[in-house]
């Protein structure tokens, strides 16, 4: 498995989600929109990250496919 090369995007996904989560809470506490309104941003960020992974991995064999 070429983990070192292919999984950079999936490796940064967690930290980026975490930063987004913290930023949304901080924005709420320091005068921005309440978290109850901004939480869908998490879904959007997650969606974009997955999309980027798919696009980056498009040239490589899919999971479960024949090698």
């Amino acid at each position: 498995m070429d983990a070192a090369k292919g999984s950079l995007l999936s490796a940064v996904r967690g930290p980026l989600m975490l930063i987004t989560l913290g930023a949304l809470f901080a924005w709420d506490y320091f005068g921005g929109q309440p978290f109850s309104r901004t939480f869908p941003v998490l879904l959007i960020v997650y969606g974009f990250l997955r999309l980027a992974e798919r696009l980056a991995g498009a040239g490589r064999p899919q999971y479960g496919g024949q090698p």
Binding site: L8, A11, V12, G14, P15, L16, M17, L18, I19, T20, L21, G22, A23, L24, F25, A26, Y29
Partner: peptide
């Protein structure tokens, strides 16, 4: 919330 942001940034840097 800055604990989460710091944690995320640190992990990002580590990666």
């Amino acid at each position: 919330p800055f604990v989460l942001i710091g944690w995320g940034l640190l992990r990002l840097a580590e990666i």
